[in-house]
């Protein structure tokens, strides 16, 4: 079924296309995203604005359109990222669990192949993730992180742009049922 590119909302549940990905794509993409987050900015400091695990947590639940799957994926990737950080385990887990859940929910209502939907969702969830992480740090860990809204907005835009290209690449790996 072909969807008009100008349509952003799905009219009926019949239009919900079930999209699946090979398991190795999930595994490899998650691993590379976390490694990228750890090692690449150490060499190329200008790339430290990228939040590759978050982009995956936005993309896959958005494609799956399944809340439980999205929640689980977000939780797993967040916890994996936590294990490689110096913060207590659960900070990224909680934030990304929420992101996974909400993106899967949004995916049920929006046409997820549209570049504008993807751009706005990445921009929104990037900000959400950053704010929620800031809240957790300040409230639970009592670590006074600085929240630079301007910097956050710019980073969100850049991640959205990168996300569009990344999602297009990942689109090639999906297998339709």
């Amino acid at each position: 079924m072909r969807v008009d590119a100008d349509r952003l909302l799905i009219d009926s549940p019949h239009e919900r296309q079930i999209i699946r990905f090979p398991w190795w794509v999930l595994l490899l993409a998650s691993l590379l995203a976390v490694l990228f987050q750890i090692y690449v900015p150490a060499t190329f400091r200008f790339l430290n604005f990228l939040e590759m695990p978050l982009l995956l947590v936005v993309y896959f639940p958005l494609m799956w359109r399944r809340q439980i799957l999205g929640t689980t994926f977000g939780c797993a990737l967040g916890l994996f990222q936590d294990t490689l950080s110096h913060h207590p385990i659960g900070m990224f887990g909680i934030a990304k669990t929420l992101v996974g859940y909400f993106t899967a929910t949004v995916g049920m209502r929006f046409e997820v192949d549209h570049w504008a939907v993807r751009f706005l969702l990445v921009l929104f969830f990037f900000s959400f993730h950053r704010v929620f992480y800031w809240v957790l740090s300040n409230s639970v860990l009592h670590i006074p992180l600085e929240l630079d809204l301007g910097r956050m907005a710019i980073s969100g835009l850049l991640n959205a742009v990168v996300g569009i290209f990344l999602f297009n690449i990942l689109d090639r790996t999906r297998e339709s049922a």
């Binding site: 809340q67 939780c75 909680i94 669990t97």
Partner: peptide, 19 residues
């Protein structure tokens, strides 16, 4: 879905709180 979310969040919060 919401239930799973709550459970997972609760578990992580407990784990975080313990740490």
């Amino acid at each position: 879905g919401v239930l799973v979310l709550v459970l997972i969040l609760a578990a992580q919060l407990v784990m975080l709180g313990v740490q």
